[in-house]
Design a protein around this nucleic acid. Structure first.
Lengths: 345, 345
DNA sequence: TTCAAAATCTGTAACGATACAGTTGTCTTG
DNA sequence: CAAGACAACTGTATCGTTACAGATTTTGAA
């Protein structure tokens, strides 16, 4: 009654309810699997008419190449890995970046995989993981340091990546950065324009590259606009909001308190405002403040704070584009972008 | 001079610098590839001593199973997909969820893939994509509706998933939800305790399941504590902050303005505060406000607002655990959790 | 001593895709 | 009209893993 069942010859019709594969299309068109594969990649040795027919059938049956098949054969994962620190303090900043990255990847074959690490572990671990297991075709990292071992490792292995922030090792690699020097410089200018002269800066942690950028802009601003610095080195943006608030209140109560404050992030600004007010001072009257900000909350609740916007979503888009371009072989030197502070409202 | 090169017999030593595979371990132990595979899975037909030896060598060379190989052969992707709306308004809420999910997945073989969709497209699209391409072993979705077509589809296909929020279709599926009914009920109580009687609610969009939960709790609270409702139906939490502010200001200036306000989210609360103050009213004096909140900003800048915390990070953890358990066959009924409002400070 | 059962181990064939090395058949060209 | 060139297509092996069906050795009961 039944036919032979031993081994399925190439011409057996694929069962209708399963995912279509190259074999499905090969059967439907009467072509070989290889031909179908090459037709879909627009290879030069396939006839134009055949290509058209294959494309049509493929679209018809809703063919998507099996990612595992491609990955196993070619090593191409079609994955971009975003390496994220899980600390609550940073996640607020990085989440609009996820949106930007997704926006770009949506139009491509790439998927976005979140590769986390905790502050307690070595930041090199996730990078090593991706490199050793071939988990992705490209990587995006944040919190870049001047001598960043992650960058060194990926450069050495010639692995495509982009960094949010610059490095200072003489390596040319894709990056997107916010011009923090300009930010701090402009911030000092705006404070001096409001008659402020004694300025204090809540800076990023010293280990990160942009710490120096911000300091440089700050000090250049002090010189150019004739202001002086009030030391505020007991805390940085990685400290808890409570610590920042306490430190700020202390400075504000001390003799020679600042009349101008610059915050390197919106979260820090909130704590600084609380510290200022806890010291019995009033924004805009006793103290002016300039903050870097990426969401609207601060603006809504303390419109007196002057806000310069950093667009993290844009950063995500730029980094995603850069990493993909790098994967496709474009030179790193062409994949470096900078964005600039924008006065909010 | 050189040996035969035609075809590599099974006993050819794998080159030392490449990723170890089963073949590597097979060569080193002198066993067959199959034996190694089964030894690593602790199969019953492999000797105890052999298993130990294989495990040792595998650890020694740092063996990780090739994901593409496993996926191609078994269909198991070891991926959990988080389906995310890319609208800025929601991403703030979902980002702590990413942290929670990552915390759980970090201890497993699972990777987290972000599958985005935009409000302009069909929310079913990303679900269909995952189902049709087999892109993941499990899915997490948010913004659940009472009759959610995504849930219906995944139930029909018997595909593991968890939802942030409940549905009302008579389907038993894993979920984690915040008790929004209790939140609104408690909020009314707290306002009445402060002498407020005319209460207004900024509610979630009516399409989402928790809209009804929140309304129910709200109305039950009104009855139980003897307050009345001030209509506020022109906007909901999906509107822009500017729209919410404007609507709030209008209500506050109108006759019969509320003296108590409840906000279904922290972002909305910020806009409401701005609206209240634009109308010349003062928090705690003229109006009291209770808000659901997941970050600290509101607390720092308007401590007068009473804040009930919803822990999104916990939600991420619970959902990740639930989906994995579901994948492993645990019944859905055991994978439903609820979390409760916690008074901040 | 014999032989079936149990305990261990192993080769082969897939999963779906692609690199590579052919195989056709047609068309120039001298 | 032979023969090389070219265009269009195809079979085989392979990536790393696991299901399946043996194969071999050991054990133990009769």
């Amino acid at each position: 009654m039944d036919e032979k069942h031993k081994s399925r010859p190439a011409s057996v019709p694929p069962s209708p309810n399963e995912r279509p594969t190259l074999k499905t299309i090969a059967f439907m068109t009467g072509l070989g699997i290889t031909t179908v594969s090459r037709a879909l990649k627009d290879a030069p040795d396939i006839g134009a008419e055949t290509k058209e027919r294959v494309r049509l059938v493929a679209a018809q049956v809703g063919y998507h190449p099996n990612r595992a098949g491609v990955r196993l054969r070619t090593g191409k994962t079609n994955v971009i890995s975003l390496i994220l620190s899980l600390e609550e303090e940073f996640i607020g900043l990085t989440s609009p970046m996820v949106v930007g990255i997704s926006e770009i990847l949506a139009a491509t074959q790439y998927h976005l995989v979140i590769t986390p690490y905790s502050a307690r572990s070595d930041p090199l671990d996730p990078v090593r993981y991706v490199l050793d297991t071939g988990a992705a075709d490209g990587v995006i990292i944040s919190r870049t340091e001047p001598k960043d071992p992650r960058v060194a490792l990926m450069m050495e292995r010639n692995f495509p990546f982009g960094t949010h922030g610059r490095t200072e090792m003489g390596h040319v690699h894709p990056f997107h950065d916010f011009d923090n020097e300009r930010f701090a410089y402009d911030a000092v200018r705006m404070l001096v324009e409001r008659g402020r002269r004694r300025v204090m800066l809540l800076h990023p942690p010293p280990s990160l590259t942009y710490h120096m950028h911000m300091r440089t802009g700050f000090e250049r601003g002090l010189r150019d606009f004739g202001a002086t610095s009030v030391p505020f080195n007991t805390v940085d943006l990685d400290n808890s909001l409570a610590d920042i608030r306490a430190a700020c209140e202390a400075v504000m109560r001390a003799p020679g308190a600042p009349d101008g404050v610059i915050s390197g992030s919106g979260g820090g600004a909130v704590a600084l405002v609380a510290g200022i007010e806890a010291a019995g001072l009033k924004l805009a009257r006793d103290v002016d403040m300039v903050s870097k900000q990426s969401n609207d909350f601060l603006q809504w609740l303390r419109p007196e704070v002057i806000t310069l916007r950093e667009d993290f979503r844009l950063a995500g888009r730029e980094l995603a584009k850069a990493v993909i371009a790098r994967i496709e072989g474009q030179p790193s030197a062409e994949l470096q972008t900078l964005s600039f502070p924008v006065l909010q409202n």
